[in-house]
Amino acid sequence: MRLGFRPPKDPEGFLAYARALLGRYAFIEVPGSAAPALFQAAQEAREMGYALTYHARYLDLYPGSPVEEVREASLKLLRQDLERAARMGALLVNAHAGNLPWTDYPPPGLSPAHEALREQEGRLRREYLERALEAFAGLAQLASDLGLRLTLENLPAPQEVPRTPEEMALFLQVPHLEFCLDLGHAQMAGQEPQAFLEALGGRLVHVHAHRNDGRFDLHLPPRLEDLEPFAKKPCTLLVELPPRGVEEYLAVHQGLASAGLVPEAMGGDV
């Protein structure tokens, strides 16, 4: 397990976290939404000894959209992210598959139309997944051509895809594509992390580690027991916290080091 962190999105904050966590964390995830502004800072972090991963943009992107123009615009931006990540020297790019445009139906018991609307939603979901499969086949091939690993992340909300281990497993048919397990998203979706491990096997290579209250994506620090299953796996594990303070990242590392799951600190400014 290689341990990484999510930095602030401004160059000064990015480098301040990098200096403080040097020797404790092995890689930094660069957010695609701020990548142009962070390019130079990311190169400085590489010179310090960090590896880089890259989170592709995802807001308002729908690579499985039923509207061809929307789908193509989304794929254009994702291809740009892959190319930028390659120029930056990243080793892995993580991406989302988007969400359905409609899940607005009354709950069971409130309307006799509930079951028919659920059936229609299921059809739309299957169709979205089919288009997303095609989209990610092209993206994964481009990533491979660029010398990158591309991972697909599980998402938390009912309208988002893929959400379950079964939906993630549909993408196993895509050559070169690997997978990211987001522990907080699985918690919100009511899915057990072990089920993703069993469904995806060795192609689950990236983990986003955080927790929440089961309702909102709070990105709270993960517990030690959340991370133990990955300690001896050849994966990159990103502790994914908002920039509330570098102390949270130091505390997570210290907990892992105290349990013997990662090496003790070798340097860095505290």
Rank of each mutant, 00 (worst) to 15 (best):
T164V: 08
L100E: 09
R87C: 03
R24P: 04
E12I: 13
L21V: 10
L155V: 04
F171M: 04
R244S: 14
R87I: 02
H253N: 07
Y58S: 10
G268W: 09
F14Y: 13
E166V: 09
H219N: 09
K233L: 15
L59S: 07
L38N: 02
V161E: 01
V262M: 13
E121K: 13
R57K: 14
A169S: 10
A199V: 05
R57P: 05
D269C: 09
S144V: 07
Y54R: 00
V262Q: 12
R211M: 06
G268T: 07
E72D: 07
D145V: 08
A140D: 03
P156W: 01
A195E: 15
Q173L: 11
E130K: 07
P158M: 08
L92N: 05
N212Q: 04
H219M: 05
Y17H: 02
A186M: 11
F230R: 01
D226G: 10
Y62T: 02
W102D: 06
P8W: 08
R2P: 03
L129P: 12
L152M: 07
G255N: 13
L100M: 11
P158C: 11
H208L: 09
A137Q: 14
E247W: 14
L256H: 05
H219E: 04
G202D: 15
R244N: 14
L129W: 08
E29V: 02
E47S: 13
L152V: 01
L224D: 05
G245N: 10
P36M: 03
L91I: 12
A26M: 06
G260F: 12
D182Q: 04
A34S: 12
R87T: 01
N94P: 00
G147I: 02
E198T: 10
S65M: 12
R223A: 05
H176N: 14
P11Q: 07
H208N: 04
Q191T: 10
P229H: 11
L146T: 00
T103H: 13
A189M: 12
R24I: 00
W102G: 01
E47K: 15
M168P: 11
D269N: 09
P8T: 01
L227Y: 11
L227K: 08
E264N: 03
L75S: 02
A86R: 14
L152D: 08
Q187E: 14
A20F: 09
D226T: 01
L150W: 13
R84Y: 11
H253E: 06
L3P: 02
P221D: 05
A86F: 07
A18W: 07
G202F: 11
V93Y: 11
